[in-house]
Design a binder for these strands. Sequence first.
DNA 1: CGGTCGCTAAACACGA
DNA 2: CTCGTGTTTAGCGACC
Length: 680
Amino acid sequence: MFQCVFSSSVLQPHSTSCLFKHLFYHSATPASQKQPEPIYSKKTEIQRQTVRAPFAKLFIFSALQVARQLLLQQQQQQQQVSGLKSPKRNDKQPALQVPVSVAMMTPQVITPQQMQQILQQQVLSPQQLQVLLQQQQALMLQQQQLQEFYKKQQEQLQLQLLQQQHAGKQPKEQQQVATQQLAFQQQLLQMQQLQQQHLLSLQRQGLLTIQPGQPALPLQPLAQGMIPTELQQLWKEVTSAHTAEETTGNNHSSLDLTTTCVSSSAPSKTSLIMNPHASTNGQLSVHTPKRESLSHEEHPHSHPLYGHGVCKWPGCEAVCEDFQSFLKHLNSEHALDDRSTAQCRVQMQVVQQLELQLAKDKERLQAMMTHLHVKSTEPKAAPQPLNLVSSVTLSKSASEASPQSLPHTPTTPTAPLTPVTQGPSVITTTSMHTVGPIRRRYSDKYNVPISSADIAQNQEFYKNAEVRPPFTYASLIRQAILESPEKQLTLNEIYNWFTRMFAYFRRNAATWKNAVRHNLSLHKCFVRVENVKGAVWTVDEVEFQKRRPQKISGNPSLIKNMQSSHAYCTPLNAALQASMAENSIPLYTTASMGNPTLGNLASAIREELNGAMEHTNSNESDSSPGRSPMQAVHPVHVKEEPLDPEEAEGPLSLVTTANHSPDFDHDRDYEDEPVNEDME
DNA sequence: CGGTCGCTAAACACGA
DNA sequence: CTCGTGTTTAGCGACC
């Protein structure tokens, strides 16, 4: 069901299950039962909507935008040129002024006169001529395609117009149609402009002589700067539209457009034009436009899409023994067709999303650094975690990220509700991604109380997906209570919070409710307060924090986190994990909110991120210091035990500094409540 | 291998 | 008697 459209390649069923394998607490039953419902139904629906159906509409919209942009640039360019035009430009002048008509779309290749002129100049070698001809051919093809598309668009618009006339919106719609037509004409004009630039580029290459006195300068930066990105976008649009209306998918011209404009060396152009699929360069420049598209040229056997003997094309994972077979596979399985184009678009969106996320995370990191630096003076941003982070990040999809940029924790350090703010995010995310066998163990080891921000971030996810939250019952209960305005809840209200916040807890009520009660009774951090209307449960924050040392005891990373000397390391590592975990959710939600395709790759990315995080975890523990002395300090199983904040001091300086005052604040909160400390 | 931890299940008590 | 609440114990698996 969810294999529709290009999901067959982008989102493999097995990768999906992998995703859920990570997400589901109990892998077997819940995963198999629930996963298709909330998540996939949404995803696929959107996929269908935006990927399959309105391809043409999408194209129109984006093409218009592109056309507008290009027109602007064109105008600027024309101003710059300010009337000084080469003979070729003069030749084209009439066409540019011709009102909209199909006639103007006749391929504006080099005119016979121009060709004659070129030949007369006798500056062209046979090879150069060939290149020139091929480029002209490409342009012709391209224009023919545009012409076809234009016709179809006109038909469509007419159709729309007719329909809307019935609806009585005639004038407005006509105007709209006219606008669209105009925009499209502008796009065509731009095509001509491209030709001119093409010619000029030939001039630069010495294939054409330049008229003396002609200022060919303005075009140069334009061709090298604006063109590649803009035109790739244009190519994208053209291609998608093309493939949308006719699935034959022979898009040579599209690729030609790209290569013609992007590349500045004639020979490479030639090869690409002659056989777009013969070279992976073309593929690369097309599919990963934002990467250093030629970087792998220097490394013959390294390819961004190839690693560890596996094709890294999103959703592919085909095994290729050697580089050659990979190239074969790439050219055969990921040729330039509608599927690949769609996948490419998806990848671009993913990258955009990641960049966005990265920007946000950078900002947060900055704030965190500032914050932590003020708090504890010792730490310098530990280079190791930094490198670790960056390497992980780089190895993954967000390769555009600057190496030194770090993700950081998702929560605001100053979250009012939870005194311990650095910790929680760590846990949340960690557990969320390392789930599998580790599951909540991690969460509670860090015992990170979940911060409201953590939950808030993933709220939507857990609300809708019956995924077991990676938090312990104790953490959840605490969160529920702290979220309440009075910082107290009845048992039933806690129940409600669970069901409200987590789809997972909407079933097997007997089980988890029993667990909740069990936890409330068992943990002395939960204090039962007799109220007028009955009993309510509150959180003894000090007790809750006290649990931490013991649980953490086994977990070096947490200890690191607590020891001020390492205060910076673990938070950063954790931050990485947090950020990664965070990434997955936004990706997911974005996908479900209208970015149709993102979710598909998101799953794959998540898997990758998971892998990265496992890496991180192992590295982390490898370099972990000794155990915390705090494990000796153990709360006793006596609920009446007096609160002793001093207990939490010593090696836990960071924690205590972070928590001390908040703890007291919480105590005050309790004092505000009528019957609190002295119940019993 | 033993200890710890978290979870589940279940028994039991108590009151409405 | 049922149901909700609260306590306690036992067993299991994971982890250290």
